[in-house]
Structures are given as structure tokens and as C-alpha cells.
Amino acid sequence: MNNLNVAKIQLNGTLFEIKKGSNLNELLNQLKIQKNKVAIEVNGVIIEKNKYLKKILHKNDKVEIVHFIGGG
């Protein structure tokens, strides 16, 4: 990707490159993650699933994608 078209975000604590102007659906597609299996927080705010399309990511955004794992 051309650097001009790339934005760097903090994804689960790691630097991650996305296409500029990507929304959350596009991020999940890029990661090959199904949206019904995760929850997403952007800059500390939980984003509802029906708002993934509208939620455009910007440079330095802090994104957390979580799922269920084994636990007691």
C-alpha cells in the first residue's frame, strides 16, 4: 500500500496498518474475523454492531477487539 493511503492505528496494543478511511466492517474483513464473535471498543467506547459501517477509523485510534476464551 502507498504510504499516503495508509493509516496506523493501535490494534489490541500493537501498531497496525489499515487503508485510510476504513470502517470497522472493513477492518474485520481485513482481519478475517466474523463480527458476531467479537466486540469492539474504539478509544474506550464500545461500538454497537449496527454502527460498524459508519465508524470510520482515524490515525492513532485505539481499537480493542475482544472475544470469549476459556475461563473459570
Partner: peptide, 12 residues
């Protein structure tokens, strides 16, 4: 019971 944790984005 299940726990909530970060998705491992390096090993999808």
C-alpha cells in the same frame, strides 16, 4: 463460564 480477552491478531 467464559473469559473476555483480546483477539490474537497475529495468529488469526
Amino acid at each position: 463460564t467464559v473469559a473476555v480477552r483480546r483477539v490474537n491478531i497475529l495468529n488469526k
